[in-house]
């Protein structure tokens, strides 16, 4: 399989701040790579370098066979960019936006108009095609944005946080659109803050933190490491805590029971969420433990970070170097694994 996006040792500094500290990426043709990380991790910087908007201080990258530093024009011909790094012109109609971009790709007027109509139809925007984009809902605007990236049917599409800020329904709709794109064999680089999004859309996930990849693997490998779903429990009486801990330990999927934010809350990673939840509740019922709140929670970016670095993603948000091995009180609960990247990496 050929590699469509390849980056080696990308470094980008802004004054004293290192946005990227030696990032390597590899995306085989026709696959989807998700760059997963919190705000400020370096995702957008990486996207901007790969789409020729920014020059790295060190490192090399090729996209669709063209070198981003030596042949930027050639790269631009072969990619489509969408998401928070690009924008639509809100004073133009959807059709005008797409036609303008077609013309700027070098299409003749007729072809640009035809392609715009095709994309509007394909993205469920034909009714809104002649309205200025400023009248669009958030979801419509993102779909138009994505359509803009696809005008020239590029081999590589880069999506920078395509669903950030969207309501759940629009997000699901956007996922369907992206999944459809992937089925056509387009190579996709996607950045996201949502583990669920990466899981849903990507073949491979690179977790990025402070400008460096800290884990690389399939969504399944990452989830297996993070522990999949968790049962979270809050007991009414703090005295029942140990009974609850025992109930959770009985369904634990390998990991130990974690203490929650308060002394009455606990959680544990499980394999079969719904069944585990029922078993826990049955046992607590038998033991006469009163439960205040219980639920199943899918792992989030925070869980990934907690597992990989011992810190939550919010801590990672704060600038400055990562602490050596995570905060002390967290270390006993979730062992920090400095070699985590090695474990998941292929």
């Amino acid at each position: 399989m050929t590699t469509t996006i390849e980056a080696h040792g990308l470094v980008k500094r802004y004054g004293a701040v290192e946005a990227l500290r030696g990032l390597d990426l590899e995306v085989p043709e026709g696959t989807v790579l998700a760059l997963l990380g919190p705000n400020g991790a370096g995702k957008t910087t990486a996207v901007r370098i790969l789409t020729t908007l920014l020059r790295p201080d060190e490192g090399t990258a090729t996209v669709a066979g063209a070198d981003v530093l030596r042949e930027p024009e050639e790269v631009r011909r072969r990619i489509g960019l969408s998401g928070q790094s690009a924008a639509v012109d809100e004073n133009l109609t959807g059709a005008e936006n797409l036609e303008m971009i077609g013309r700027l790709y070098g299409f003749r007027r007729r072809r640009a108009v035809d392609r715009a109509r095709e994309l509007l139809d394909g993205f469920d925007l034909s009714d809104a095609g002649n309205r200025p984009a400023k009248t669009y809902s958030g979801g419509m605007r993102r779909r138009l944005d994505l359509a803009c990236a696809l005008v020239a049917t590029p081999r590589v599409v880069v999506l920078d946080e395509p669903t950030t800020g969207l309501d759940p329904r629009s997000r699901l709709q956007m996922w369907d659109v992206i999944a459809g794109l992937v089925r056509t064999g387009t190579t996709v680089l996607l950045t996201t803050q949502y583990l669920e999004e990466a899981d849903r859309l990507a073949d491979d996930i690179v977790v990025i933190d402070h400008g460096r990849a800290i884990a690389h693997g399939t969504a399944d490998a990452l989830k297996a490491q993070v522990g999949g779903e968790r049962v979270e429990l809050v007991v009414a009486d703090a005295a029942d805590r140990e009974a609850a801990r025992a109930a959770l330990a009985a369904v634990a999927g390998g990991d130990e029971v974690h203490d929650g934010a308060t002394e009455r809350s606990l959680s544990v990673a499980v394999q079969d969420g719904a069944r585990s939840l029922r078993r826990v509740l049955d046992r607590l019922e038998t033991d006469g433990v009163r439960v205040l709140d219980v639920g199943l929670r899918r792992p989030t970016l925070d869980d990934v970070f907690l597992t990989l670095t011992g810190r939550t993603a919010e801590d990672a948000d704060a600038s400055g170097p990562p602490p050596g091995g995570g905060a002390d009180e967290e270390r006993d609960l979730v062992p920090a694994r400095p070699d985590a990247a090695g474990e998941v990496a292929r």
């Binding site: 901007r48 789409t51 020729t52 908007l53 024009e73 050639e74 631009r76 011909r77 990619i79 960019l81 928070q84 790094s85 690009a86 924008a87 639509v88 012109d89 971009i101 700027l104 790709y105 070098g106 803009c148």
Partner: peptide, 17 residues
């Protein structure tokens, strides 16, 4: 400011246009 320039700069268009 609005990011439309980034869209333009990611296109294979004339850089002075």
């Amino acid at each position: 400011q609005k990011g439309i320039i980034d869209r333009f700069r990611s296109l294979p268009m004339s850089q002075s246009a």
